[in-house]
Amino acid sequence: MEHGLILAGMLFCIGLAGVIVRRNIIFTLLSIEIMLNASGLAFVVAGSRWGQADGQIIFIFILAMAAAEVSVGLALLLQLYHKFKTLDSDTASRMRG
């Protein structure tokens, strides 16, 4: 099952690279989804290895969390877009105080 984990790792790293590299917030959120997906893959692989249902259960939880996070994140994205008129995440870098 190392192959599965390797795949999960590679997907995770790609997602991480996407988070760091892309400035467009949409892509940042998308990359986060990639990462979540990769970690879910890792769990399912592990569950399959040990023959238990726990891997899938965690995967379900990850899915629920991803759903919640996506909805909130997209709402924030809309707010940001209304405020700054751009989707560049670097524009929201002014810190108060």
Binding site: I20, D90, A92, S93
Partner: peptide, 12 residues
Amino acid sequence: SGKVRWYAAGLA
């Protein structure tokens, strides 16, 4: 810097 990407990079 206030940039999200910077912090993410820091995490990584």
